[in-house]
Design a protein around this nucleic acid. Structure first.
Length: 440
RNA sequence: GCGGAUGUGGUGAAGUGGUUAACACAUCGGUUUGUGGUACCGACAUGCGUGGGUUCGAUUCCCAUCAUCCGCCCCA
């Protein structure tokens, strides 16, 4: 044993081969479902110019001010590992001129990949974590907002989650927001001394965030605060009404919570969170997806005036949740054939045989450690093999093999040449390389 | 950035300031000659996160450090 055992950086994780199947399953589910909505994958760099994030997320957010992994590269460029997905997608949208008229609107994209935030790790929250998110550009239609929300709900339901709550709110347009902000500050100011220390900081930096404080004293104060919904401009009011009508038309059970405020500064109009209740993610309702409209972002990054909407889902938290809720997860793929060899000269025959089996589309494995026959059977059994093909010295001498069905214990002797040309006829099973799904 | 807990073999987990670090699971081997989930037998940490310190002597005491887990902030 070496003395220097390297450890992965704090807040990162190794996804080992034994555990990757469920990630594939969730990702594949997203790909298929989002494709039904005509969202296709976009892959943008994992790092971007620092400004891409600082200009979009806002300088009041901790995400920018203290959680960003930023650095100077050898060319003295100020770069940052992406802390969220939207900014990079918007940048790519603008840079590749997808706002052009030849591209149908809304222009839709989804992403899956790692994000980075320098913070203390805790349940389902890593420094390198993964998000699935979608973005749609070029339409302000509230029906699109509703559809985006519906897609997120659809995704969770497809994964077998049921205990979901959709919470929506609106931040209105800039005018609405400014008017509300002023009113909120006016209301909060006399209560300043009674606010928690955290909220006093929020009051200075981003007063809206006081609204979703978890502190009970804060909440008592917030209960009497003015509502954003009373400060909406006519246009914002109309959109807000249309959104709710659209959600109702889709039969989506939603809740209006005027105190929901998203953490990134770029949102306006529709914002939403999908929440669930699970001991795996702490007490009470916790957010598993969040998103909203960001009608100023494209312009902020140098594009034309063009609206956008999207959401993000934290995969680590989702995996924890699926595990805790015993939702559908893929089973370990079974092994079709385990090839057993024994004795002089059989090694090459076994090598050829596993390859032959695989060439028919079946999965095959064998022993590479020259272990005893019994041990090889044990391994075949442990790997849930359906068949074994034994090639020992005796079989090799007569150019045959022993084919055994491990479930029925039936065994037959077959010529090697016959197996090489006609193997599927001897197996009472279809190739099983696809990952099945268990209702665990 | 703040607070709490933890760190012994592949896994779970006992344990003590002093010569051989329990036990269980897993793994590997064996139980006479080529056939699998049982049973029995055996093997398996020169090491107790890392680095210092105290001591005649530390895995056990002290300090630091790293990492993990939980909570706050923030957020997915």
């Amino acid at each position: 044993m070496g003395k220097n055992i390297y450890q992965k950086p704090k807040g990162t994780a190794d996804l080992m081969p034994e555990n990757s199947a469920q990630w594939h399953y969730v990702e594949e589910t997203a790909r298929l479902l989002f494709s039904d909505y005509q969202y296709h994958e976009i892959r943008t760099p994992i790092f971007e110019s620092f400004e891409v994030f600082s200009r979009t997320s806002g300088d009041t957010s901790d995400v920018v001010t203290k959680e960003m992994y930023d650095f100077k590269d050898k060319g003295d460029r100020h770069l940052a590992l992406r802390p969220e997905g939207t900014a990079g997608v918007v940048r790519a949208f603008v840079e590749n001129k997808r706002f052009g008229p030849e591209f149908a609107k809304p222009y839709k994209a989804f992403y899956i990949g790692p994000m980075f935030r320098y913070e203390r790790p805790q349940a389902g929250r890593m420094r390198q974590f993964h998000q699935i998110g979608v973005e749609a550009f070029g339409s302000t239609a509230p029906t699109l907002d509703a559809e985006v929300i519906a897609m997120a709900v659809d995704f969770f339901q497809t994964l077998g989650l049921t205990n979901l709550k959709v919470v929506v709110n609106t931040l209105g347009d800039q005018a609405s927001r400014d008017a509300y902000r002023t009113a909120l500050i006016a209301y909060l100011k006399p209560h300043f001394d009674d606010l928690s220390a955290d909220s006093q900081v929020r009051f200075e930096k981003n007063p809206l965030r006081v609204l979703d404080s978890k502190d009970s004293a804060d909440q008592a104060i917030v209960d009497g605060a003015p509502s954003i919904l009373d400060y909406l401009s006519e246009d914002a009011q109309a959109r807000w009404g249309a959104l709710q009508a659209a959600l109702e038309a889709l039969g989506i059970n939603y809740e209006v919570d005027a105190n929901v405020v998203r953490g990134l500064d770029y949102y306006n109009h529709t914002i939403f969170e999908i929440m669930t209740q699970s001991p795996a993610l702490g007490h009470g309702w916790t957010t598993i997806a969040g998103g909203g409209r960001y009608n100023g972002l494209v312009e902020e990054l140098g594009g034309p005036e063009m609206p956008g909407i999207g959401f993000g889902i934290g995969l680590e938290r989702l995996m924890l949740l699926l595990e805790a809720e015993h939702a559908a997860l893929p089973s370990t793929p079974p092994l079709d054939v385990y090839v057993i060899s024994q004795g002089a000269g059989t090694d090459l025959a076994a090598l050829q045989m596993v390859q032959a089996v695989r060439s028919f589309g079946y999965s095959a494995d064998r022993d590479y450690l020259d272990r005893k026959l019994k041990a090889q059977f044990k391994t075949a059994d442990r790997q849930n093999a359906r068949y074994t093909i034994v090639i020992g010295e005796r079989e090799l001498a007569e150019q045959s093999a022993n084919l055994k069905n491990l479930a029925t214990h039936e065994e037959i002797t077959v010529k090697l040449a016959e197996l090489y040309t006609n193997l599927p006829a001897y197996l009472e099973t279809e190739p099983s390389q696809e990952e099945g799904v268990d209702e665990a």
